[in-house]
């Protein structure tokens, strides 16, 4: 099935359940519902930010969308082509167009490869470009991400965290992808370095016409880089909206609490904090009805029985909460 839209990627009713094995027979005794019936689409050239706390399923979603993890159910369309059932071999050409930058640049770069080899590796796997051209390409990529051509013979341990993340970005961009999943790319960096990398990512997006799915737990960072934002809670979307709407008029009680919890450097206007009680429930045993009701200051009877569906609140603002039904 194909359809014409300006969506580069569309995910429909994605579910990703991880089995929990127990007993001596290692039988499946339950499931962690990391992503539970979630749909979203990403427009060409935009940055969609995904925020959520640890355990909300945001990283799993990023990996399922790239088919690095098999979805339990649901469909993924990349450039209007259904890729949810493609075999690994069929996926390989698509990998050029879809790349990922991981959180931890200490773990995601092979310590035994030098920078040149790291950046060339995707070209070697995916293309038959000659060695000399590969080298030229690696140098131009290094310069593009703000490193020097002389750095290409160094190894990852010789670089700082920020520089390593630049190498990861150069590596992800080596095949001229259209779509990049950025999974907490700046969370392990200091603020001054974080700003450098965020600026770089914004420049590259403009120059190369990239589409980003930007996953992070830091709401200020996500707000800065994104056009639209999705808030995840227990594997589901709580709210999705253009950035301005989400920050100025958050509808979901969880989004409201989340935004109010971010410590602000505005010493003159103090925000009223909504302090949530308790922790995120276990995704193995989510509450009935609305997943957020156990911590929600506005929960009522209906929330325990009926799961709220995502509904339109106008101007592309969607919210899953019974308060607005």
């Amino acid at each position: 099935m194909t359809q014409k839209t300006d969506h580069i990627l569309e995910a429909r009713n994605i579910k990703k359940y991880f089995p929990i094995k127990g007993g001596i027979m290692k039988r499946t005794v339950g499931h962690i519902k990391a992503v539970d019936d979630l749909s979203l689409s990403i427009v060409k050239g935009e940055t969609l930010g995904i925020v959520g706390e640890s355990g909300s399923g945001k990283s799993t979603l990023g990996r399922v969308i790239l088919r690095l993890l098999e979805p339990t159910d649901g469909r993924i369309y990349f450039e209007n082509e259904d890729i949810s059932k493609l075999k690994n071999r069929q996926l390989r050409p698509l990998r050029r167009d879809m790349q990922i930058v991981f959180q931890d640049p200490y773990a995601s770069l092979n310590p035994k490869m030098n920078v040149q080899e790291l950046i060339e590796e995707p070209l070697l796997v995916q293309t038959s470009i000659k060695k000399r051209i590969r080298e030229e390409k690696a140098i131009s990529l290094l310069e593009k991400v703000g490193l020097r051509a002389d750095d290409r013979l160094k190894y990852p341990h010789e670089f700082s965290g920020g520089q390593r993340q630049r190498i990861s970005i150069a590596r992800a961009l080596s095949l001229n992808p259209k779509f990049v999943v950025c999974d907490e790319p700046v969370s392990s960096l200091d603020v001054s370095i974080q700003a450098q990398v965020l600026n770089l990512m914004a420049d590259l997006q403009e120059e190369l016409n990239l589409t980003y799915l930007f996953i992070a737990h830091d709401l200020s960072v996500v707000k800065h880089i994104s056009d639209r934002l999705a808030v995840m809670y227990l594997g589901r979307l709580a709210e999705i909206a253009p950035k301005k709407n989400l920050y100025e008029n958050p509808l979901h009680p969880y989004t409201q609490a989340l935004l109010s919890s971010v410590p602000s450097t505005d010493v003159l206007n103090r925000r009223q904090k909504i302090i949530l009680k308790g922790d995120l429930p276990s995704p193995a045993n989510p509450p009935s009805g609305c997943g957020f009701r156990t911590r929600c200051p506005k929960a009522h009877d209906r929330c325990a029985v009926e799961r709220p569906e995502l509904m339109d609140a106008g101007e592309g603002h969607m919210v899953a909460c019974h308060l607005y039904a």
């Binding site: 700082s160 920020g162 603020v191 001054s192 370095i193 974080q194 700003a195 450098q196 965020l198 600026n199 914004a202 709401l219 200020s220 960072v221 707000k223 800065h224 880089i225 920050y247 935004l259 971010v262 602000s264 450097t265 505005d266 206007n269």
Partner: peptide, 21 residues
Amino acid sequence: LLDSLPSLEKEVDRLGAISGM
């Protein structure tokens, strides 16, 4: 440091990064 901090309150096009490390 303050310029390089993205904030929820104000909207800037580019963050004022400190060069080097």
